[in-house]
Design a protein around this nucleic acid. Sequence first.
RNA 1: AGGCGCGUGGCUCAGUGGUAGAGCGCUUCCUUGACACGGAAGAGGUCGGUGGUUCAAUUCCACCCGCGCCUACCA
Length: 879
Amino acid sequence: MTESNSLPKAYEPKDVEPRWYRFWEERGLFLADPTSSRPRFAMVIPPPNVTGSLHIGHAFTLSLQDIVVRWKRMSGHDVLWLPGLDHAGIATQMVVERQLANQGLRKEDLGREGFEARIWAWKEESGGKILSQLRLMGFSLDWTRERFTLDARLSRAVREVFVSLYEQGLVYRGDYIVNWCPRCVTALSDLEVMSHPTQGHLWHIRYPGKDGGPGVVVATTRPETLLGDTAVAVHPEDERHRHLLGKTVILPVLGREIPVVADPFVDREFGTGAVKITPAHDPNDFQAAERLGLPSINIMDERGVLNESAGPYAGFERFDARSKIVEQLTAENLLVATTAHDLALGRCQRCNTVVEPRLSRQWFVKTKPLAEPAIQAVQDGRIAFVPDNWSKTYFEWMLNIRDWCISRQLWWGHRIPAWTCTACGELSVSRQDLSSCPRCGGGVEQERDVLDTWFSSALFPFSTLGWPDQTPDLAAYYPNSAMMTGFDIIFFWVARMIMMGIRFAGDVPFRQVFINGLVRDEKGDKMSKTKGNDVDPLEVIDKHGTDALRFTLAALAAPGTDPSLGEARLLGYKAFVNKLWNASRFALMNLEGERAAGYDFASLPVPSRWILSRQQEVADRVEAALGEFRFDQAAHQLYHFVWDEVCDWYIEIAKGYFADPTEGPRARAVLLEVLEASLRLLHPIMPYVTEEIWQRLPHEGESIMVAPYPKAQASKRDPEAESQMERLMRVVTAIRTIRATYEVERRKRIEVTVASHAAADRALLTAHGGLLTALGGLASLLVVEAAPETRGAIRQALDGLELVIPMAGLFEIEAEQARLSKELSKLEAERLGLQKKLDNPQFVERAKPEVVAESRDRLAELLARRAKVEATLAELAEA
RNA sequence: AGGCGCGUGGCUCAGUGGUAGAGCGCUUCCUUGACACGGAAGAGGUCGGUGGUUCAAUUCCACCCGCGCCUACCA
């Protein structure tokens, strides 16, 4: 009895997890070392938004990242995995605004500084929660390098990049139509607008001629915008409308006189072929107006309420104005028709409010010059997407990229470092805060706007390493080795990191981009809080443990697919954690308190050489799988090796060896070796349970975290032992099948004769008689050259062997005939297929020779078995 | 409109140019000194449809049907 007997029967994650995380962190095992001479592996975490707590999607992508990171560390790399948080401008501001609203307050009540202080307090709360969750999940992040996108160091990088871009002419300010959210009261980038297919209307409205003629009919989906119309446009070659060119029509409601102009952008097929031009509220119209020199009239304020330019409708909310205007037009007989019309309605990503295209003064990044080298980097392979098909998505967007609106009318974020002189109006963009105008010395006012939150995220791979200073970290860890994230932020984040990295840090930000799917529920539906089908990682960890969750996520991570996470799957892998635990418990119980004995591989019995050989194969496959981000394959390999091979076969066989004075110590040594290696192989996926067990086993080093990742050893490969073992397992399974079919009681031991004409087979079977006897529940085993003609016996042919089992008292002729007939028809079906193939001369000629040979062997085997079964059936018929 | 992806046993999903796999579920048996979160043995699939390429197609190609997702300034 050893101390290990104190191991509980079932694994209790809660008792072990916090202990080991503390242990790792206290010993500095997560720390990167830029002075190390080891190969580097560097990655930054996709910084979570400080808007609450982590969801299952974070748990998924970050678990995969931690698997890679732990694997690389064990494989001898100096690893940096850098943690951080994102201030998430608009999203975080919304959260806090909502909190204020619950107290009946608006941010204006606190003032800008007061509100910012309030958000900082929230940042501490949410950030703290997130950081503790990251620890709970076992992530091996270098906490000494934790960063926040709004902290001083990163803000300095943001300012440096902004000013540089401005100096290079790649940031500009101007009046353009932008996507405007009237609820958030800010401009949005194109990416922040979600388009929703919507059933809407197309209103056909008559603009009467000034000359008293019928004028022209235009079609619009937003009739309220007619208040801002400054022209009507038709296609220059449209015969239907040619007579109107140069004429003047009367704008309904307001009675303004506007010209009919020609522009080729008008689609003659759409609507009436005449389009109203509203330069201040539509991007196409804006461009047309620029071309044609038309004025623009802004009819709406920043909250979507019509302004004084809207005449009688000033003060109306935009959708109220719409319905009222439609009423008025109907009353005045100017509404010619109303038809149903499908349109893509843009809504704010954050609050779902219908976005209003609005003319306003904003800051933009000129993206084309940044995009070109970013496209090039992926084209020439300096950056690889995994799976590769995402590069197509990337190109698609990059090739059609449009300028990026980066200014936001928010209070939470990096304030734009631009100052306007109150005296001379000079605009100055500066790295240092300005207190006076560099041109005239007058007073200055800083921009009120802040930058899009993704602007700072785009710099994350280098801003976190100290850039623009040339720090040791930057030298050691830039470019990062990989970036792992979800496809939903390829454009928001990945593309922009590539553009900014190349431009400012002198190289691509990372070499590989691994794109994972989105976690769905067990039915494949998207998870959402409103639907109530979302899974809280903390609840899962509480119920099943971190390792079970991590293993499940890894096992589900097939590339290019979205994992469906369900309770059943989780329970299955929780059972696996427990299985591993109990296998270890068994090994420890038999350890006899000392380090296991050595052995000479070549002289080990077949099962021991088999399991060691298999372990090398598994090590190889797991390593290969991890190298390709095939977490699912790595997990499945290990699952089946540990459960099916180590537990179900080797441990059961080893039990028979333990009592033996010579085999016992060797079997214990082999079992320990295999188990210990399996723990190391599993550690990146299941860090806690593997550490807990590993520490109790004989081991070298302070933690499994920094123990070497197992490499396949060629000296322990033994294909012969593998095939011999497969033969033995097949015999055992055949015996068990017969026992099960005839419902032989477990305690009842049976007599089995195995016949084979091959001497090697007979030697193998004889040498492992003990094994067969134990696993098959035999009373006796007789190995012979030719099967005896025993009446009333069950016969089973397989792979050149024949089993003969006398079943006195249990044997029923009808049952046995049925069993054999079924087998016969199966054999016959397969034989027919093979025969047909081999009878086809084309196949024999053209197929690969080894395929033909295989088929012939298989056919011969089938024929032999068929003969045996037929003979037995004939015997039974006589009886 | 364009792009991407999916359609394999009851469910959720892997996979492969040449005898179809897993987890869960299901059936039968088993409380054996690691584990009932367990053990043993099973049942269950014309791999969405139609053509084509091939000696051979679930796997490659084309088209079709069904379902997702992404991108897009048609008023």
